[in-house]
Structures are given as C-alpha cells and as structure tokens.
Design a protein around this nucleic acid. Sequence first.
DNA 1: CAAAAATGTAATATATACTTGACAAAAATT
DNA 2: AATTTTTGTCAAGTATATATTACATTTTTG
Lengths: 70, 70
Amino acid sequence: MARNVKIKAARAELDMTQKALADAVGVSRQTMNAIEQGNYNPTIRLCRAICKVLGKTLDELFGEENDDEQ
Amino acid sequence: MARNVKIKAARAELDMTQKALADAVGVSRQTMNAIEQGNYNPTIRLCRAICKVLGKTLDELFGEENDDEQ
DNA sequence: CAAAAATGTAATATATACTTGACAAAAATT
DNA sequence: AATTTTTGTCAAGTATATATTACATTTTTG
C-alpha cells in the first residue's frame, strides 16, 4: 500500500492539517487521509491540485511509486 | 479540453501506436485516445504506467496543467 | 490529566474513470 | 486508387475514485 509520507512532510512544512489540505484542494478529509495512507489512486487532476497547494512538483510528491498493488 | 500532444510526441519518438501504448499500460485504446484528446482525467497509477513505458517523467507528460476544464 | 483537535478507518452512496463493441474518417501501405 | 491500419468518437455497461456519516484512537493543547 505504501503510505505517502512525502505529502505528510510537505503538509508539515506548511503546518497544514489533513482537513486544511483537503479543503484547499476541494476533497473530503477522508480522501486526503486515504491518499496519505496509500489506500488509493487519485486522479491526476487531484494530484496536480495537491502539488499546487503544497508547492511541490508531481515528481516530488507522486513520482517513483515503488509499490505495485492492484 | 487541451489535447495532450506530449504523449503523442513521446509515442511518435518510439514509433508506437495508440493501441500499442494502450496494450503496454493495460488500458483500452479508447482510454488512451481520450487521454490524448484531453477528454479526461486519468488516475496517477495510469499516468505512472504511461511515463514508464514512454520513458518520461510525470512532470514532462502531465505537469503544467495544460487545461482547466473542471 | 482532561478537553479538544487531528487522524485512522468502516459502511453506504454517488460520480466518473475505464471497458467493450461498433462505425466513420483519416493516414499509411501496396 | 484500393486496402489496411490508425485514429476519433459514441453509447451502454462495470469498476473504482470520492462523498458522507459516524465513531474510535491518537496527538495536541490548556
């Protein structure tokens, strides 16, 4: 499942809560949590929105997925 | 809608047809076509698979929010 | 420590990514 | 020019991303 610790770290840099990030990108808190937990597979549009808010690139936050479940 | 011409170009570099790319990443030809036409919003897993096959990064193929339709 | 805020997780519901089949038009091949 | 291959697109179905409600646990704060 591979938790996405990079999002968590980027969020921490900005002192943002999961809910604050979820609100900023327009999804539910549960969706943000699930993404950080690695429990699914967001759309590219959502990934882009997350990158924009956190000031990171796609490659930084979503590149190099080492796991291949599914 | 913003067509994704970068995928088309990368495909051309490798002399790959839409169907060949679709097969390589495990989706239907129609799905690949729709992505190139900008008709939707693939999942990050599919984007990663496309990048892997085409030898490009996420930022190269899917960065730079070319379009902004909802 | 107690209260509050943040996080993890489950169940059910809805929107939409993706499939399949089919056909027309454009491009490439002969 | 005819044939084949590739691309664009549509309609109807299936799978899954995301929402909502709800509750338990962990972390933070007073």
